[in-house]
């Protein structure tokens, strides 16, 4: 299973970004291989339409699960039904992933 998380800094010890499209990084975790990869958000400095580019990125990574504090309207429209979206908790990436596997995260939308 592929889990994707918007983050403030890079790596599994990072805190979760306040928003999805303007996150500094994305943490992409493959639970089958138990490997996490960090991607820089290429569209961070784009004034318009970052939500769409983010959704495009998430879908291209074949993500099954997105853990985020919130999803904008544009991303949501594209992700709905394709990716399960969970509300992040105010802890680091690693703990969010652990909480997800413990079924402790609340489903968003």
């Amino acid at each position: 299973m592929i889990i994707i998380i918007p983050t403030k800094t890079s790596g599994e010890k990072s805190f979760i970004s306040d928003n999805l499209g303007r996150a500094n990084y994305f943490y992409v975790f493959d639970s089958n291989k138990n490997i996490g990869e960090v991607y820089i958000n290429k569209h961070l400095d784009n004034p318009h339409g970052v939500g769409i580019k983010t959704a495009e990125f998430i879908l291209n990574k074949h993500s099954d699960v997105l853990i985020t504090p919130r999803v904008g309207e544009k991303s949501l429209e594209l992700l709905k039904g394709k990716v399960k979206i969970y509300k992040s908790i105010d802890k680091i990436v690693k703990e969010n992933i652990a909480s997800f596997f413990n079924n402790d995260l609340e489903e968003l939308h």
Binding site: N19, D45, P47
Partner: peptide, 10 residues
């Protein structure tokens, strides 16, 4: 204005 600038301010 844009979402980008507001995000920067914050």
């Amino acid at each position: 204005n844009s979402g980008l600038l507001v995000t920067r301010v914050k």
